[in-house]
């Protein structure tokens, strides 16, 4: 069964993932079943329950504002699919 609200192609576009027709059909059915399964969460009364975002409530971790060693430029660029003149080369952004 497929979820009435999930349009896999539309969401994949939001996530910037191209899908083949076959993938879209398969994922639509599989994710529909997963969403159907998680519907069970709606049977619980959660009014007045605080959400948990993190297992440890640690907030505002600070350190002294002093510089630390970081990656050297060569190391940062070493894995770039395309670089030139010590810069990352990107696909044209402005038409």
């Amino acid at each position: 069964m497929s979820s009435p609200n999930l349009d896999v192609r539309d969401v994949a576009r939001l996530a910037r993932i191209e899908l083949t027709d076959e993938e879209a059909t398969t994922f639509q059915a599989q994710l529909g079943r997963v969403l159907e399964y998680v519907e069970q969460l709606k049977t619980l009364d959660v009014s007045g329950v605080e959400p948990t975002a993190h297992a440890n409530p640690v907030f505002n971790v600070l350190r002294e504002d002093v510089s630390q060693p970081g990656l050297l430029r060569e190391a940062a660029l070493a894995n770039a699919p395309h670089s030139a003149n010590n810069l990352f080369v990107v696909t044209k952004v402005i038409e």
Partner: peptide, 10 residues
């Protein structure tokens, strides 16, 4: 909702 149920599980 999942985050709230996570609180119940904890």
């Amino acid at each position: 909702r999942a985050q709230k149920v996570r609180t119940l599980i904890r």
